[in-house]
């Protein structure tokens, strides 16, 4: 997942605050509005966006999500015997239609959230996260950002140490226990090296004046008009969905009997606006790609 971080997409170029608003709204709405239509919309939107982000690579990954989907969908009817329409009996317990539907509903919801989390990991890279976080909690975000900077260096160093040890003939054995012992030994060496290194880095920070009062936060992120448009869109769609949900949507129940999907205008509006919101990233990405093709054709 991290390996792809270099290839930036159009959606990722939006301002971090806008992106964060979008993901928070999308995830919270998905999670707190247990309505099958909304869940399905979230799933489809997430799926499309992930496809645009990863392309064929993601199709292969679906091989992991599909079994998960089936597993979640099927375990519910096996454990839960609520509902009034038994399909068949297993060990004397009824497996009901309602429980099966509820299982599928759960599966849709779970995979939908997973897709959005996956997209989040790709789009909200650590620097964006830290940019937002840095204003609220400067000390914590410093610890986090330095740790993130250390990590690749530590990985490289631990590899170097491992090879150096092998090169002088230590832990060169190939057996399983040898390899574990080797890793452990290298890990201990890394503790020693990293703490030493940390002292050097903190000297460099002090040398450049860290610790004075009134520190500012610099970033390359600029809030453009496109960000404004997008933010306005998200906020109005979220508001619409919330209003619709509050005014019209009844609690959708699976037990004892599955409720019907209402077709009142208010709930229809809510479904429409949430559907649009869920498709927004994919649409935005698509629009930018078409624009890009157009610009490229002029070069």
């Amino acid at each position: 997942m991290r390996g792809n971080a270099g290839r930036e997409n159009a959606f990722s170029r939006l301002h971090p605050a806008v992106l964060m608003t979008f993901f928070l709204s999308e995830l919270l709405l998905t999670v707190f509005l247990p309505h099958p239509v909304l869940q399905a919309e979230a799933l489809v939107g997430g799926l499309l966006f992930c496809l645009l982000l990863w392309g064929g690579e993601f199709l292969r990954e679906l091989g992991f999500y599909l079994p998960l989907f089936v597993l979640v969908a099927l375990t519910n009817p096996l454990f839960s015997h609520n509902g009034v329409t038994p399909l068949f009996f297993l060990n004397g317990n009824p497996v009901t239609w309602e429980a099966l539907l509820y299982g599928i509903f759960l599966a849709v919801s779970v995979t939908g959230v997973l897709f959005w989390c996956k997209a989040y990991s790709r789009v909200m890279t650590s620097d964006k996260f830290l940019y937002l976080f840095g204003k609220v909690a400067p000390r914590l975000s410093l610890v986090l950002s330095v740790a993130l900077r250390f990590l690749p260096a530590y990985l490289a160093q631990s590899k170097r140490v491992e090879r150096a040890q092998k090169g002088v003939g230590l832990y060169a054995g190939e057996s399983f226990t040898d390899r574990i012992k080797n890793r452990l030994r290298v890990f201990v060496a890394m503790v020693s090296w990293s703490t030493e290194n940390a002292m050097e880095v903190s000297a460099s920070m002090k040398g450049r004046g860290y610790g004075k009062k009134g520190r500012t936060n610099f970033s390359l992120f600029k809030f453009t008009s496109a960000d404004g448009v997008f933010l306005a869109l998200i906020l109005s769609l979220t508001a619409l969905t919330l209003c619709g949900a509050a005014a019209g949507m009844k609690n959708f129940a699976f037990y004892p009997r599955v409720s019907r999907v209402e077709l009142s205008p208010v709930s229809f509006a809510a479904c429409l606006s949430f559907g649009l919101q869920s498709l927004l990233p994919a649409l935005w990405e698509g629009k930018e790609r078409i624009l890009w093709k157009y610009y490229v054709s002029k070069i």
Partner: peptide
Amino acid sequence: SQIVTDKVWHELAFGLENMGLPQ
């Protein structure tokens, strides 16, 4: 061991942030 942050631009800005300069 003198590099504090993970991006080149941020590393350049680090000292200036400490001085409290505006964006």
